[in-house]
Amino acid sequence: MSVELNHTIVHVKDRWAASRDVGQVLGLPEARAYGPFAELKLDNAASLDFMDSKGEIHGQHYAFLVGEEDFDLILGRLRDDGRQWWADPFKRRPHEINHEDGGRGLYWEGPDGHWLEIITRPYGSGG
């Protein structure tokens, strides 16, 4: 048996602005229209399906496993955009990276209060 995440819906105020923001930081191709969604495809064939929502949006957490080179590129984009990032989800270590499980990781605030993270090693992988 094989179970894989295929997609998740990300509730936002403006699906196109939010998908562009996340896609630009991660270095992904522009989202495409799919029904009421702006579908941002990830490299493992899963997608973030951004959907316009009215009312209060409750921020969610989205973590992305990236390679070492991609980590450097993403960090560079955050720096170039003058964005804030943290080594921890509690915002105690601004403009730092963590080294959990022998890799590197960081967090930043995405559109509409969503909390985004990149890691180079899966949690619990040791190191």
Results as ranks from 00 to 15, higher is better:
4 E>P: 04
4 E>L: 07
6 N>V: 08
6 N>A: 14
7 H>S: 10
9 I>S: 05
10 V>H: 03
11 H>N: 05
12 V>G: 13
13 K>D: 11
18 A>C: 05
18 A>E: 14
19 S>M: 07
21 D>S: 07
22 V>I: 15
23 G>L: 04
24 Q>N: 08
25 V>D: 09
28 L>P: 05
29 P>C: 03
29 P>N: 12
31 A>R: 07
34 Y>M: 09
34 Y>N: 13
34 Y>E: 08
35 G>P: 03
35 G>M: 12
37 F>D: 06
39 E>Q: 09
40 L>F: 03
43 D>Y: 00
44 N>A: 11
47 S>Q: 01
48 L>Q: 11
49 D>P: 04
49 D>I: 00
50 F>A: 08
52 D>M: 06
55 G>L: 04
58 H>T: 06
59 G>V: 04
62 Y>K: 01
64 F>A: 06
74 I>E: 11
74 I>P: 10
80 D>A: 15
82 G>I: 13
84 Q>C: 08
86 W>H: 10
88 D>W: 00
92 R>Q: 13
93 R>M: 11
99 H>F: 07
100 E>C: 12
101 D>K: 02
102 G>K: 10
102 G>R: 13
105 G>H: 10
105 G>W: 02
111 P>Q: 12
113 G>P: 15
115 W>I: 03
121 R>D: 11
122 P>T: 14
127 G>Y: 03
